[in-house]
Computed example of a mutant assay.
Amino acid sequence: MNKTFRQDLVVRPRRIRTDDWTRRMVAENRLSVDDFIWPVFLQENNGTSDVPSMPGVKRYGPDCLVDAIAEAVELGIPAIALFPYNNPETKTEDCREAYNPDNLICQATRSIRKHYQEIALIGDVALDPYNSLGHDGIVKDGVILNDESVEILCRQALVQAEAGCDYVGPSDMMDGRIGAIRDTLDEAGYTYTKIMAYSAKYASGFYGPFRDAVGAKGALKGDKKTYQMDPANSEEALRLVENDLQQGADMVMVKPGIAYLDIIQRIKNTFGVPTMAYQVSGEYAMIKAASANGWLDHDAVMMESLMAFKRAGTDAVLTYFALEAARLLK
């Protein structure tokens, strides 16, 4: 063998890729069931209904919700996030159903807690599922009112905590809502109810199927660019995360996920705090559609996409793939 050629190959990186056990031993990141949060859609009617734009995703009525949660508990998924699909008659411009102590999230929380203590419950704190105009805040003359919205968000978070939610997840992007919610919870004695703040939530085109799932898409008047983040911005995300942490957030969320891995990594490297990501409905739907057409290997791409979050520094991923991925890992 030519000596120069031999010297070039003294280091052979392929050696540690040649067999499965070595690849497993030297893997820099690992997925586990502990990394998943499962989003669950609730409906008032008994039974289930499909979300057409999200194959495999269902809305669960009160008669079958507990049975659906059973598999998540058995698989060891640590948390579920609850999102309501409200009937049109409960949606109003003042969003009063959001703080009704018997709304869908509160009912579901109490029902699940009667059967299971070993899974965390996260209540979504936002007004779009309750707003007849489809926005995450109170609207007046076409303007989303910040402080008036925050007041309602505080009442919404409180009824969720009272029902038994372990976390509240403010996903509205109103200014100052984290501090206001923290004060509200503390004053009511819910000091240990955690806040999962959607600190970097972008005005994204990836949310369409979710809006179908909660019945908000058709109602939306205009867009959400006056309160959700500009996809062009990165430095702003760091400022928003710092602000929410100072106001009492226990962990922060980046939404969407795959298109914003750089934001996840910057947040994790800068603050070193628990950093979550939401693999949103559009990301899920794209993988499902491509695999249904035979263009992608579903399981391989699903797991690869989830590993990307871990590689970027995510501590947990809110994903509609949670059950499927957990089954594979088991």
Rank of each mutant, 00 (worst) to 15 (best):
G248T: 09
M276P: 00
R182M: 05
G47T: 09
L65D: 02
M174I: 00
V40T: 06
I122A: 11
E151C: 06
T191N: 15
E235Q: 15
T191E: 14
P39D: 10
A27D: 07
G222M: 04
Y99V: 00
C165Q: 12
Y202F: 10
K217F: 14
E148P: 06
G215P: 06
Q246M: 13
D244E: 10
N29F: 15
T184W: 03
A249D: 07
D19G: 01
M173I: 08
Y207I: 05
Y198Q: 09
Y116H: 11
T314K: 07
E187A: 12
W38R: 03
A277M: 14
G61D: 01
L238I: 13
P170V: 09
E162D: 12
L104N: 04
M173S: 05
I138H: 13
V143E: 15
S111T: 13
D35N: 11
I112E: 06
L323A: 03
V51A: 03
P55V: 06
L104G: 06
A232M: 09
I80Y: 00
G47P: 04
T275S: 00
E151P: 12
D244F: 09
A68K: 03
E236H: 07
R177W: 01
Y320I: 08
I264Q: 07
G215L: 06
D63K: 06
G47M: 12
D315V: 01
E151V: 14
S171G: 01
A108E: 01
G272Y: 04
V252Y: 06
G294L: 05
